[in-house]
């Protein structure tokens, strides 16, 4: 049971990561590329959280008794969760910057198509 769950978590994250990167590379529309990067980012977050997951353990929010009596044996690993918290916020910041770049490009050139972008840059 535990192994099946962990395989599913990793599979979920890896499908999102690779699928997102594929979308980001093959799509012509900039907005779709941004969506692809957001999906890939979500996949990375899921993989990171899965590395800290231990089957049948508590979340790392423990009362006084649990914290003084060998908490490492009853809680999941808190470090990946803290790292993912950082990662999500940075993802929001970079995604917003992406979106504003797309908006600015549309203002200047009247298109968000990748192929016509190359003509404009010549």
């Amino acid at each position: 049971m535990a192994l099946v769950l962990e395989i599913l978590f990793y599979l979920n994250g890896i499908i999102l990561l690779t699928g997102g990167l594929i979308i980001a590379i093959i799509s012509r529309n900039i907005i779709k590329m941004i969506i692809g990067f957001v999906l890939a980012h979500t996949g990375v977050n899921i993989i990171l959280v899965s590395t800290g997951y231990i089957f049948n353990r508590m979340p790392p929010i423990l009362n006084k008794f649990q914290q003084t009596n060998n908490p490492a044996a009853i809680s999941v690993d808190p470090v990946p969760q803290a790292l993912v918290l950082t990662s999500i916020v940075i993802g929001v910041a970079t995604t917003s910057l992406f979106m504003f770049y797309a908006l600015r490009y549309y203002r200047d050139n009247g298109t968000i198509d990748r192929d016509s972008m190359e003509e404009h840059n010549d």
Binding site: P60, I61, N70, D77, P78, V79
Partner: peptide
């Protein structure tokens, strides 16, 4: 298998005496 990382183990065990709050994250 079912082990904490080294830093996770340290943070969990020393949180009670360092900061005295429930939420380790």
């Amino acid at each position: 298998s079912s082990m904490q990382s080294i830093s996770g183990d340290y943070y969990l065990t020393s949180n009670a005496k360092d900061f005295n709050i429930p939420n380790v994250v």
